[in-house]
Amino acid sequence: MTDTATLNSLTLNNGITMPALGFGVFQTPPDETVEAVASALRTGYRHIDTAAAYLNEREVGEGIRRSGLDRSEVFIETKVWISDYGYDETLHSFEKSTRKLGVDVLDLFILHQPMPKRFDATVQAYRALETLLADGRVRAIGVSNFMPDHLASLLAQTSVVPAVNQVEVHPYFSQPEVRATNESNGILTQAWSPIGGITFYRGEGESTLDDDVIGGIAVNHGKTPAQVMLRWHLQQGRSAIPKSVRAERIAENFDVFDFELASAELEAIDRLDTGMRGGPNPADITTETFALTIPEA
């Protein structure tokens, strides 16, 4: 059996330990976020992933406070939106996020998109993250949705290697090249849409939850397809960020530490990759196509 402690936590490239399985709040309405976060923390999650662009950081903070857990027990991750890229703008984004979350220090602060058409602003934003890290205001820094060419450009112009690259990874779009690039640079791959929920967003093709291969593996272990997919991520050394607002599904997604997938099962899931992205292409994300001003409060 794979060591559960190893599956449940990962050590980042700067020595910081992070719970491998996080709870996400993407597209969770603010009025549902407080209880969803509190429910996740009651279930056992100790890693909450949010973003300025989700417009629910304030409610995430309230959910953490309502849990009664000490601040040191919860790993908080959030993201800078592209409208706040630039050195001074990103420093201000940190102030906005921490004020809404009600904390002084972030455990992980990452850039939400590479914005290649204005990469100079992206580099300046990342340099602000480096300053925050050096000042002890964040414990680790990283990026999201960065493809290999974006990472190469960033690494050539900055000093601190990102601890994390959060990207779309699920059985139908597993991004092996991105994952290999991350690994070669000592960057942890963190999966958003880890059980393929983005396939519903696209409204095309078969859902991973209905896949016969995944379903057969789930039956073999007495688990659900979602649990099998999350276990696939964890056993392959990735962080995964599932999301739900339903207490029973929140609990189901956390119940993945008592079984092990065989090598053949992991390989069978690997073979499901279609190479087709479910979410938007990072190259297309600009302040014009995804216009959003992050409010001060």
Rank of each mutant, 00 (worst) to 15 (best):
V178S: 01
P116A: 11
F26H: 14
E288K: 15
H92M: 11
L266V: 12
V37N: 05
F26N: 10
D104S: 14
A291V: 15
P282K: 06
W192T: 13
Y126E: 09
A53P: 01
T293I: 13
W81T: 05
A52D: 03
E265Q: 14
S207P: 01
T78F: 07
E59G: 02
F259Q: 03
V143H: 00
L12M: 07
H221M: 04
Y201R: 12
K100F: 02
V167D: 06
L101T: 09
S39D: 12
G215D: 03
P30I: 05
A251G: 06
E77I: 12
R46L: 09
S93R: 03
P176Y: 04
R231D: 03
I16A: 05
W192Q: 09
V80A: 02
E177R: 14
V213N: 02
Y87N: 08
A264Q: 14
D135A: 14
V167E: 00
A191D: 14
E296I: 02
T11C: 08
S207T: 02
A240I: 00
L12A: 04
S193F: 06
K100C: 08
E62P: 05
N185D: 01
A262K: 15
A20S: 15
R246P: 00
L155G: 05
E57K: 08
E177Y: 02
M276E: 13
P176T: 02
I82T: 11
L41Q: 03
D120I: 00
P176V: 06
W232Y: 11
Q175Y: 01
G205E: 04
V103R: 15
T158M: 10
P295S: 06
T11Y: 01
A20E: 00
R246G: 03
A247F: 05
G278L: 13
D84H: 13
Q236W: 00
L111I: 12
T289E: 04
K79G: 06
W232M: 12
Y54W: 07
N14A: 02
W192F: 15
V245A: 08
L7R: 12
F146C: 00
L133M: 11
T224M: 10
S207A: 10
I64C: 05
L106F: 07
A240H: 07
E252H: 07
V60S: 01
E296N: 13
V178F: 02
S239W: 00
R65V: 12
P162D: 02
P242M: 11
A40F: 04
A36K: 09
A134K: 13
T158G: 10
G237C: 11
N185Y: 13
R46N: 01
P242I: 08
R58H: 11
T286G: 08
I82A: 06
Q166F: 01
E57Y: 10
S72E: 13
D212G: 02
A38I: 03
L154Y: 02
P176H: 02
R249L: 07
R71W: 00
G136C: 07
P148G: 11
